[in-house]
Write a protein that binds this DNA or RNA. Structure first.
Lengths: 262, 262
DNA sequence: AATCAGTGGTTCGATTATAGAACCACGGAA
DNA sequence: TTCCGTGGTTCTATAATCGAACCACTGATT
């Protein structure tokens, strides 16, 4: 049982994305197919509480300062700064490339933490980015460790949405099997055109797939072979990370892994 | 007009802080003086949407992955990574100390961004931290630029809560006047025991106080005199930052500055 | 300058989701 | 066993929400 009103309210928050960060009242109501009165009431409530901010000039709404605050609570609680970041930093220093922590949430992957190399290619802005599990090494390595039925479902949905990232179902399924067997994955130009990455899986205390750890850098200095060379640096540290993560119980939605799914 | 149900739901979120990041159902209901049924319904709703995570072993709730995602949307929209961070970085490099961006929200100050120096004293974990305006240089410089009636109200509330940071109202008010006249503020050991800071104010497009920019470092290498020596590096860059911030319209609650207050 | 179409915002009675007492089932302590 | 606590569920009186219709305003278009 779940609250319809709160559910509606949270659905409203969901449309504030990097792509569309500001919304007018009626524009938003139209988009969500809701009566503008109720949208207005909810927006006002969020605004009062600091979750949304209404620009007084444009009268458009955007996400508020509260999310900066609450993000800190999550990071603190996960010991991201004190425990996870140092390990990622060590890998970054050793390999000279950026290190990315990705987490499985529902049926997608989310970049949770990025530690940048000293080199000038930056993509820390992508923290929080969410995308389908068949895109990029960091996501594919997760997909490879999901139950086959779920892989099927996700790939079918990808084909339906005509994703350019699925050449054919058979090829992808075969690729996933190889990835799982070998325990790592390399990709280039999938999530970002000019970026290549090399990823290994992370597991929770019940040995269920939790996410992945990746090294990422610009394509021109990151071939598959160079990726393989960096693999040891990843694998050396991934155990430490796994033991931390297994104690933490990461707050992402993976309940379906223990339940039956359709 | 505001939605009671959503308001209640958001009040629940508010108790998930750095100090108390996890809550059991009944514990939470007791704390908020609410019926546990309704708390349960709201918690479930948040959980479904990824805003809360219920640890399957302990059955305790904590903030979910959604806040990492939405924090990114806020930061992206504010151009924190691309525009603000480089300026802060420049100051950090020039002074060798960490640089802190603080913003006024309602009647408190919130650390919105911290760029660390290469030196080993770290307090980036404090991003999102919220505290009263009479504590620390970064907050006092904001308080000094608020209307006198509001200063009165805030200081009175501080005295009522028996804050150790207010020696006497007269002294503090006099201090605030000096700070405002001189345009900067130094403090040590207020927000953190071993940290000193030097702060200058930031204003929005309507020349209203928006927040502050600070240099902060460990007390032993950060005397008032050393703070003053670093002041030019701050002031050189604060204009650039002000011009960026005036275009951005920062999403913090400062409506009361344009309205009457009680 | 008058019209129109679009905003954001408000009102109020019919409708519908919510509130909360009472209820499980479970688990640990005495 | 009993007791107290927990998380979670059920059901109906009740109170909050929904939404058509309503302002007041703005900025094109005629």
């Amino acid at each position: 049982m779940s609250s319809k009103t709160v559910d509606k309210a949270l659905s409203i928050l969901d449309v504030f994305t990097v792509e569309t960060p500001t919304w007018g009242l009626r524009e938003l109501a139209r988009n969500l197919d809701m009566n503008h009165t109720i949208v207005h009431r909810i927006l006002t409530t969020f605004e009062d509480k600091g979750y949304l901010y209404c620009n007084p000039e444009t009268k458009k709404y955007e996400l508020g300062i509260k999310f900066i605050e609450l993000n800190n609570v999550v990071e603190e609680h996960l010991n991201i700064s004190t425990m996870i970041q140092p390990i990622m930093k060590e890998i970054a220093v050793k390999t000279g490339e950026s290190v990315v922590l990705t987490v499985l949430d529902e049926e997608e992957g989310v970049f949770v933490k990025i530690v940048e190399s000293e080199q000038k290619v930056r993509f820390a802005e992508s923290v929080g980015k969410r995308s389908a599990l068949y895109i990029g090494a960091s996501h594919k390595i997760i997909l490879a460790h999901l139950p086959e039925e779920l892989q099927n479902k996700i790939i079918d949905e990808g084909i339906e949405s005509q994703s350019k990232h699925i050449p054919s179902k058979e090829k992808l399924m075969a690729r996933l099997e190889t990835i799982k067997r070998e325990g790592w994955c390399f990709s280039e130009g999938e999530t970002f055109d000019d970026v290549a990455a090399c990823s290994v899986p992370l597991f929770d205390s019940k040995h269920q797939i939790l996410g992945s750890l990746s090294i990422a850098g610009p394509k021109y200095r990151f071939s598959q072979q160079e990726g393989e060379e960096k693999l040891p640096a990843l694998l050396e540290n991934v155990e430490k990370l796994n033991s931390i993560l297994s104690k933490v119980n990461f707050p992402s939605r993976r309940n379906y892994l223990t339940k039956k799914f359709i």
